[in-house]
């Protein structure tokens, strides 16, 4: 479930990046790469889990699924936080720099 949620987030972020390209001021590409990286890593994890569990891997218990979904949503939130912190630090539109200049004046 975590893998699935992250993959959907990666797809959505990629679509956002593509829709806004070549304008990169919102750094949607960074968000997409964060989620794709995590998706690939969880995919590798899923391969090993499938090798261990077999078909049982596709029929998780409801409680496990709910916990994984909750984890997936928390992971999405953390991805957004990393992206927004990166965006504010890089400040591609120069908004924070302009604000600090105004305050200094």
């Amino acid at each position: 479930m975590t893998l699935l949620i992250t993959v959907f987030a990666a797809i959505a972020a990629t679509l956002l990046w593509y829709k806004n390209a070549p304008d990169n001021s919102m750094r949607y590409g960074t968000l997409a790469l964060i989620y794709w990286g995590a998706s690939l890593m969880w995919f590798a994890d899923a391969i090993f889990e499938y090798a261990e569990l077999g078909a049982e891997f596709f029929t998780p218990a409801a409680a496990d699924m709910l916990n994984d979904a909750y984890l997936g949503l928390c992971v999405l939130a953390l991805g957004f936080i990393i992206w927004i912190v990166t965006l504010l630090i890089k400040d591609p539109k120069g908004i924070i720099r302009k604000m600090s200049v105004k305050k200094n004046l």
Binding site: T30, L33, L71, V75, L78
Partner: peptide
């Protein structure tokens, strides 16, 4: 930089999963 973003982002989210 693309590789860095995928590796850092993925590792950070996976580290969170391990804390979980």
């Amino acid at each position: 930089g693309w590789l860095n973003k995928m590796l850092w982002g993925g590792s950070a989210l996976l580290a969170f999963e391990h804390i979980w």
